[in-house]
């Protein structure tokens, strides 16, 4: 059964059409990369899939049902959108411990810190990290806990080239274990490195499927 299905998904914001009859399907173990110019509707699509934006028309199904306000939804879905707000009084480690506490079944925090190259800053406040380190922490909080679907909005931003390769490997490993990934990205190299099914979005419509030239 597909993990993500949209049928004629449409969204209007600020008097303009942002998504125009988008049809998308993602199966278990599949990585779908949505590419397109700024403002074409990639982030809006992810917000619809996460249930944070109600579509104006069409249908969205995630894990067999419409994204709901049931908090159990967030046991299955991980979302990386804009940079999260941090607790100023919590350290990097404590943020990851909070994720482990609230979601359960997360990877050991020490291992996560190691995988996301944050061990040296584990005792620091996220507010003192560089923007790239904060992006790694946000990725760790999203990916280091069990889920069946990852929605990643430009996960590559602010990351150095070395960690981008590591991120591609992580996404591949997640999909290989049966997880589904929908990512919005401008990074053609990430799409190639993850062997993702690439879709190009233009003016709110999915205009092209298949490999995209870098």
């Amino acid at each position: 059964m597909p993990v993500v299905v949209t049928r004629d998904l449409s969204v209007e914001l600020g008097g303009g059409t942002v998504l125009d009859r988008v049809n998308l399907t993602a199966d278990p173990g599949q990585i779908v990369a949505v590419q397109g110019v700024n403002g074409c509707g990639k982030s809006t699509l992810l917000r619809c899939l996460s249930g944070l934006l109600r579509p104006g028309g069409g249908k969205v199904e995630v894990l067999g049902a419409a994204p709901s306000a049931d908090p159990a939804f967030w046991r299955e879905v991980g979302l990386l959108a804009e940079e999260p707000s941090w607790y100023p009084g919590l350290t990097v480690r404590e943020h990851l411990e909070l994720v482990a506490l609230t979601h359960g079944g997360a990877a050991p925090v020490d291992r996560t810190l190691d995988e996301f190259e944050l061990t040296a800053r584990a005792g620091a406040s996220p507010l003192t990290l560089s923007s790239g380190q904060r992006q790694r922490l946000a990725l760790a909080a999203t990916m280091a806990r069990p889920s069946r679907l990852l929605l990643l909005d430009e996960p590559e931003q602010k990351l150095d080239a070395g960690f981008r390769d590591r991120l591609a490997a992580m996404i591949r490993a997640y999909a290989a274990a049966g997880g589904t990934v929908v990512l919005a990205t401008h990074d053609a190299a990430l799409v190639t490195a993850t062997d993702a099914t690439s879709l190009r979005m233009r003016d709110g419509r999915l205009a092209q499927a298949g490999p995209v030239a870098a």
Binding site: A72, H103, A144, I171
Partner: peptide, 24 residues
């Protein structure tokens, strides 16, 4: 340093209820 990346996805396929969640 491991290279396996993230925690594997859930395999049970259940959504569960909030009440039976991992923490309060």
């Amino acid at each position: 340093m491991t290279t396996t990346g993230t925690t594997p996805p859930r395999t049970d396929g259940t959504t569960g209820s909030a009440a039976s969640g991992p923490a309060t």
